[in-house]
Design a protein around this nucleic acid. Structure first.
Length: 927
RNA sequence: GCCUAGGUGGUGGAACUGGUAGACACGCAGGACUUAAAAUCCUGUGACCCUCAAAGGUCGUGCGGGUUCGAUUCCCGCUCUAGGUACCA
């Protein structure tokens, strides 16, 4: 019987589903292992061959860990709220829920064909009310919490109210809005309910505030910082402008320090950790206040170089700074207003593109230098960003290149502050040398100067050491339809949570998915949509990342109606041991998830500071586009003649993308090409060696480039097992690589050889119960050891190679012995589950047990000692070229060889060709 | 500019803590089976030199140095590629 992948794979996939083979239950008698894939957004295009790469890797790890006796949680679900379904709904009127359902079904079908070991009983969909009920519920907890910096955790808002009514807010060290005013208990207790709510809103972790947001007019919504890339929207690439709006935000900045510290305890790729560090952007420095004479105002600046304070010859405010209009003198009013208006009109993109030209305007006002008391002019310029620090800087032209250019341009004083500085051509930010022109720190070194200045400023009440973070609070509202409704209603213009009993707050039906005529979000179209028939609901919905910020908890207990996951389930499954997904989520999903995880920990729902202990970024699989070369006539018009790649230089040609599915090994299938597009029906070809050879190029996989390879086609032709093994064989998991099918035949051949081991030349089942030879045992144990080692370090490509070697060796030895083949199937099962299931069942085992049961293959009794261990090199460390990885007694071997230096001819059964000595030590044995 | 990762045959890639560089696979060449093709199997395959052959030699992991008995691996400088990030004070 030949290996028929189509029948075998269908048969086992059905068997697994019908018998619920991969069902997982919490089982305290077994150690748990949680393997998570970043769940997909089910787009209309379906899966291409790049998507399953990470899923295959995680599936291999899952199956392997099961074999090792772990209780493995390996779920899959859908991040099913999102823009494309809504855009489609706007165009067609089709409800996004319908589109989403269809797409999910298609995804499920495609995923099932690859043979994953997901427990589909645990599937989650972020857009289902049973799921988003709990997303809303977590939002309510955020609304009901504040961040206590003294305890370094989130606490209930009730506790805050209690403190307010007892002693006001003077002793509170909270994460809050920066316009807080201090009050005592007496003041608080006298306030009306609305006034209290207004103040509390400034402390809540989910809060509503007038803030500058990234507004994308084309998408009709605001975007979070991580959703804006290079000044345009991440989705669609539309322009984004700054706009002031009342917006829901999450106070993620309260967690900045913990988010940073947590990075030290996770096992993540270094680039990703670095990205998050940069995004959080911690910088140590000082806040310094420059008083404005004749007022009680002080301009606060943030600087990382207080030591240069004596070189501060002017202040610069961002054009958006809120005091500008008050500061500006009458004579400067016109100029300033013109500048502010011009800066406001500039898009983020323009502002970034033009960093060379120096521009700015003088307000006419002066501040007082906090240490020298000298008059310091106040300027505005767009090189100062409103969103960073305090939106104002003290300009030190001698130490900062931007300040230097500004000073040169507007002829402002440049004061050297160190004797080691060279400021003739440009600013010099050296910390070396002795300070000059710097009064109290003259002659000091950097460290001492900073300490002296900070204490002096603190004494005067004009500054203090501080830590500034680049990260901003996360804008949480979206003016969209297809997202979770925010469980909030308004009374007297103030937000209140709906009753927990009323969760989930269902997404209402609307007639169209567009904003209302009055500019309200689509939910404004819902008729009679009022809380208790009376109060207006919040009309914006949650952003795409809301549902994905806690989903790994839901998999632990997906059907729970009492809580987001039961205490027992969380206690057992704890956290994600291995998380596999793309690096594009570095500053979005992965940051927000860590934030929600820490928040839920603070509330006592679990005990893990970090949700994802180990994380792997699978590399992107790019497409390889194929080209045919159409001959162009004198006028430059394309003919219907196509010339093969090697001969194209003899003609005038234009390259045309051709569907990669009709090209194999760069050779074009001429008949299929003629049917590719009607215009090619009568195509003629100039061949080389009887073949038409195509050119190729690596590009991103996309429909328009005809280079999308669909896993279904590969599975149809070669089978899911081949696809799985081949994707692993392609190269290191974390590396980006182009898809090509050039090597797939080799992998397919390997699987057929596995099949052939169990059959004789006529294709009849032929497995013997004979005792294996030492040679055969050696081949087997090499692979067992190698697979274990490779999976532990996520080096899947090398174990595929090892499998090939193993099968070649066994084939050569004509080994058809059960004692060898049975364990071989077990270790191969994670990579190729279908073919191994089939052979496993034929060996007389209960179907399904291979992927379910713990098999003692990895236990030591299967590892035979000593006799397989041959040293190859001896020098403190061992290399085993003959046998991979098995331990051997180094000292013993070394002693033996040294004692018999002249007569050693064999080690084990290997002939020693050469003993290499260096300085009397054996460095290497050539065998 | 800054941060991070990387540069190995015709190709994808091995070489895990410094120890025979190029495993495994693709491709290519030759052969077997076949009327023929496909499939399958066998042999060869880094470059160069030498040899009828066996054998042997030299060079070789982006470039230039260094440490070492020995470097793809460690150190210094440069260069190129990919990803991230940027008036962040």
């Amino acid at each position: 019987m030949v290996y028929n992948h189509q029948d075998i794979e269908k048969k086992w996939q059905r068997f697994w589903a019908e018998n619920d083979i991969y069902r997982t239950e919490a089982d305290p008698s077994k150690p748990k292992y949680y393997v998570l894939d970043m769940f997909p957004y089910p787009s209309g295009a379906g899966l291409h061959v790049g998507h399953p790469l990470g899923y295959i890797a995680s599936d291999i790890v899952s199956r392997y860990k099961r074999l090792k006796g772990f209780n493995v949680l390996h779920p899959m679900g859908y991040d099913s709220f999102g823009l494309p379904a809504e855009q489609y709904a706007i165009q067609t009127g089709q409800h996004p829920a319908v589109t989403t359902e269809e797409n999910i079904n298609r995804y499920k079908e495609q995923l099932d064909r690859i043979g994953f070991s997901y427990d589909w009983n645990r599937e989650v969909r972020t857009s289902s009310p049973q799921y988003y009920k709990w997303t809303q519920w977590i939002f309510m907890q955020l609304f009901n919490s504040w961040y206590n910096h003294d305890e370094d955790k989130a606490e209930s808002i009730d506790k805050l109210i209690e403190i307010f009514s007892r002693e006001g807010n003077k002793k509170i060290n909270a994460a809050c809005d920066d316009d807080i005013e201090l009050f005592d208990a007496f003041f608080w207790n006298k306030l009306r309910e609305e006034q209290k709510q207004e103040i509390l809103l400034k402390y809540r972790l989910a809060y509503l505030k007038e803030s500058t947001v990234n507004w994308c007019a084309q998408l009709g919504t605001v975007l979070a910082n991580d959703e804006v890339v290079n000044g345009v929207s991440e989705r669609g690439g539309y322009p984004v402008e700054q706009k002031k709006m009342m917006q829901w935000s999450l106070r993620i900045t309260a967690y900045a320090e913990r988010l940073l510290q947590g990075l030290n305890e996770v096992d993540w790729p270094e680039p990703l950790i670095e990205m998050q560090r940069n995004w959080i952007g911690r910088s140590e420095g000082a806040k310094v206040r420059f008083p404005i004479p004749d007022t009680d105002k002080k301009i606060e600046v943030f600087t990382t170089r207080v030591d240069t304070i004596y070189g501060a010859s002017f202040l610069v405010l961002a054009p958006e700074h809120e005091w500008i209009s008050q500061l500006t003198t009458i004579s400067q009013k016109e100029e300033i207003e013109a500048y502010v208006a011009a800066a406001g009109k500039k898009s983020e993109l323009d502002r970034m593109a033009d960093t060379k030209t120096v521009s700015g305007a003088f307000t006419g006002a002066y501040a007082e230098h906090p240490l020298t008391g000298k008059r310091v002019p106040i300027w505005i310029s767009d090189y100062v960003l409103a969103s960073y620090g305090t939106g104002a800087v003290m300009a030190v032209p001698s130490g900062d290149q931007r300040d230097y250019l500004f000073a040169k341009h507007f002829d402002l004083p440049i004061v050297a502050i160190s004797d080691a500085q060279d400021i003739s051509e440009q600013a010099d930010d050296t910390k070396k040398g002795k300070y000059i022109n710097s009064d109290i720190i003259n002659g000091m070194s950097y460290q001492k100067a900073v300490a002296t200045l900070v204490s002096t400023l603190e004494e005067k009440g004009l500054g203090e050491a501080t830590i500034n973070y680049r990260m901003r609070d996360a804008i949480f509202g979206r003016q969209r339809y297809w997202g979770e409704p925010v469980p909030v209603y308004f009374k007297n213009n103030l937000p209140y949570l709906i009753d927990e009993k009323d969760l989930p707050l269902l997404l209402p039906e609307v007639d169209k998915y567009l904003p209302t005529e009055s500019g309200e979000p689509p939910l404004g179209r819902a008729e009679n949509w009022k809380y208790k028939g009376e109060f207006e609901y919040e009309k914006s919905t949650m952003p795409g990342w809301a549902g994905s910020s806690w989903y790994w908890f839901r998999y632990m207990d997906p059907k729970n109606t009492e809580s987001f996951a039961s205490e027992e389930a969380i206690k057992y499954w704890k956290d994600v041991d291995l998380y596999i997904g793309g690096s594009e989520h570095a500053t979005g999903h992965l940051l927000y998830s860590r934030f929600w995880n820490k928040f839920l920990k603070d509330l006592g729902f679990h005990n893990e500071e970090e949700p994802f202990k180990k994380l792997i970024n699978q590399g992107m699989i790019q497409g390889v586009s194929s080209f045919v070369y159409r001959i162009v006539d004198e006028e430059g018009v394309g003919t219907n003649k196509f010339v093969s790649f090697g001969l194209k230089d003899q003609y005038r040609t234009t390259p045309i993308h051709v569907d990669v599915n009709i090209v194999h090994h760069d050779k074009l299938d001429l008949e299929k090409f003629k049917n590719f597009r009607p215009e090619f029906k009568e195509a003629e070809f100039i061949l080389e060696g009887g073949e038409y050879i195509c050119g190729h190029e690596v590009e991103k996989m996309s429909k328009s480039k005809y280079n999308v390879v669909n896993p279904d086609d590969i599975i149809e032709q070669y089978g899911a097992d081949t696809l799985r093994v081949y994707e692993m064989f392609l190269g290191p998991l974390e590396q980006a690589k182009p898809w090509n099918t050039n090597g797939i035949d080799g992998v397919n051949r390997f699987l057929r050889r596995v099949w052939a081991l169990f059959h004789d030349q006529d294709g009849k089942w032929a497995v013997s119960d004979a005792e294996p030879t030492k040679q055969e045992m050696k081949s087997l144990h090499k692979i067992i050891h190698k697979v274990e080692e490779d999976i532990e370090r996520f080096s899947f490509n090398t174990s595929v190679s090892a499998f090939m070697i193993c099968v070649n060796e066994l084939t050569e030895q004509k080994c058809n012995k059960r004692a060898i083949l049975e364990p071989l199937l077990v270790v191969l099962q994670p990579y190729a589950p279908h073919i191994t299931e089939e052979l496993w069942a034929k060996l007389g085992h209960e179907p399904g047990t291979i992927s379910q049961a713990v098999y003692p293959v990895f236990e030591s009794k299967y590892l035979v000692e000593d006799e397989f261990n041959y040293p190859v090199s001896i020098n403190g460390k061992l290399r085993t070229n003959i046998l991979m990885g098995l331990d051997w007694d180094q000292q013993k071997v070394e002693e033996t060889v040294l004692a018999n230096k002249d007569i050693v001819k064999h080690i084990g059964d290997k002939k020693v060709k050469k003993i290499i000595f260096v300085k009397g030590r054996i460095v290497n044995l050539v065998v």
